[in-house]
Design a protein around this nucleic acid. Structure first.
Lengths: 250, 250
DNA sequence: CGAGGTCGTTGATCTCAATCAATTTGCCAC
DNA sequence: GTGGCAAATTGATTGAGATCAACGACCTCG
């Protein structure tokens, strides 16, 4: 599915890469952008082939995964609205990108986009920053995969989804109550099998740990994949996370 | 320890970030660069404080690590010659950087370097590329931490050290025999405890798996931390790695 | 020389999560 | 409604790696 776009009405106008661009630059980028929609479980990019486009997520969740020769799988990242998909300046991105929900992307043809980036140092700077943040997030996840217990992993995952939900919400409301206030209702964007692949566990262990957190009174489950978090502070403790000090980004 | 430098005689002149710069630019950068030497186990950057400098590794190995509140530790990356240390454009880098061996850095004061980077888009482009590579490496490591067995992890680690050694060597000799030729002698840059923290294992398991690989005839151990690899192809199989296809970088 | 140290190996035992195996729940089409 | 199917839960058992413990190799320092 393809369609032309207008940046003015774009939902992620102020969060995405293009947020740093001038009016003229936006115009330029608008001219070559197009939208694509992906159904849940639709593959966006694969392992080996050279991707022919580059995209910003407007809505939906994308999972990045790697697969070993014998079928073992590991999800190496989740991408949400305003994150980007596709590796610029390389002929290959070494993992799969798959729609976890319905996904809308703001796309550019690879070559055109790369030329544009080289013309607009601010845009490249913004992408660089974003990539540094991704690298920090990947390294934080390595602690989870290398050192955390199953329960800590599940709590960390719920926490991640909470944070992402708040980040999106905060964009509209620009005020967020502190951790530990009222109940929080969130929707998990992944199946049990996907959560297992993200956390380095099996689906049975994931299921059991959800049950355990529920019986410990830390969460409740609701219709579909909804989760009720009673106290985010407690959740973070169970997750074994550092108190989220100021990250000090410029 | 501090000393002035000359880029002309720099060992990593052609591999490092500065490789993309013009003669004038090199001069400019040379004027503000200084060298620092760190002893093994000396801390280069910590968790929280704002780093006041930015550095390129000229020689030695640096480990990047994170620690949980209760002391559990995870090494989230190893940096070798020509890699860089310190996070530009942020007031904090969220992990420790510690010298694993004697380390020589080519340093710049943070502010000066950031200004320089913004003036030289090629330099920023090069750093961006490098960061993308780091991100890919981090994600590949997530597969190891989430899905590989202890034996696969050890084999993967040895393989990593082999590749890094070859990358450095290849810089001088510019020809490398294919995988699976003669015996290869390498020196592990980490203690057992560090290897355990890198692989998400305990020292005992690391030790047992080395013994196991030895008795399986895949490696031999020698004086100090030296390892003899008989057939890199076999090692890669044991590591559960994909055949290293062309990565397709620009 | 022996004392004290770190580092690495090996053995015995335990435990957490994987594996194997039923069920159960929810959802869609008909 | 009922059949069919994927997703999720729950139980029984196993096993890989952690933990606890002892010991050997190799330092340096007195």
């Amino acid at each position: 599915m393809l369609s032309a776009i207008s940046c003015d009405t774009c939902a992620i106008r102020h969060r995405a890469l293009c947020g740093v661009l001038s009016a003229e630059e936006i115009q330029k980028i608008n001219a070559i952008a197009f939208r694509r929609t992906f159904a849940p479980n639709e593959m966006i990019l694969t392992d080996r082939e050279t991707p022919e486009f580059f995209g910003n997520i407007i809505s939906g969740v994308v999972k990045l995964s790697k697969m070993m020769a014998d079928g073992r799988q590991q999800i190496v990242g989740l991408q949400f609205a305003s994150d980007f998909i596709g590796r610029p300046f390389a002929t290959r991105n070494p993992f799969f990108a798959e729609a976890a929900s319905e996904v809308v992307l703001c796309c550019f043809r690879k070559k055109q986009f790369e030329d544009l980036v080289r013309e607009m140092p601010d845009l490249e700077h913004r992408m660089f920053q974003h990539t540094l943040d991704e690298l920090d997030a990947a390294r934080a996840w390595m602690v989870l995969l290398g050192r955390k217990s199953a329960e800590e992993r599940i709590a960390s995952f719920i926490n991640l989804v909470v944070e992402r939900a708040q980040a999106s919400a905060g964009c509209q409301s620009n005020f967020m109550p502190d951790a530990g206030a009222a109940d929080l209702r969130i929707e998990l964007p992944l199946t049990r099998a996907e959560i297992a692949d993200y956390l380095g566990l099996t689906i049975e262990t994931v299921s059991r740990q959800f049950t355990r957190l529920k019986s410990r009174g830390i969460i409740d489950t609701a219709k579909g994949r909804q989760i009720l978090v009673h106290d985010v502070g407690v959740l973070r403790d169970v997750a074994g996370e550092e108190d989220p000090v100021n990250l000090g980004l410029e």
